[in-house]
């Protein structure tokens, strides 16, 4: 069973939110950022790209998605 589901089934709502935020904080903010990579922050989320060609194409795509659905990420950032 995924950890997030396990948390949801065993903990009170407030703790679930807190645990999910802790998990997201670790996955999105902790960990190696490869030297030479380019980090672009979109709507409060750092996207790490390796290789300039990837950056050029991915940012455009990511921006399209972010524009359409910025609400979810912004909401997470505000909760934090």
């Amino acid at each position: 069973m995924p950890v997030s589901e396990k948390i949801a089934k065993t903990a009170p709502r407030e703790e679930v939110d807190l645990s999910l935020l802790e998990i997201l904080d670790h996955v999105l903010n902790a960990g190696v950022v490869v030297h030479g990579s380019i980090v672009i922050s979109l709507a409060g989320v750092d996207l790490v790209y390796l290789g300039l060609n990837v950056v050029l194409t991915s940012v455009e795509t990511a921006l399209r998605h972010i524009d359409k659905n910025a609400g979810e990420v912004s909401r997470l950032a505000r909760q934090k």
Binding site: S4, V45, I66
Partner: peptide, 16 residues
């Protein structure tokens, strides 16, 4: 979209 608009879902899958 798991890398952008559904980043929460993507991040949880990566965490798993």
């Amino acid at each position: 979209s798991l890398l952008s608009s559904r980043v929460k879902e993507g991040a949880l899958a990566a965490y798993k």
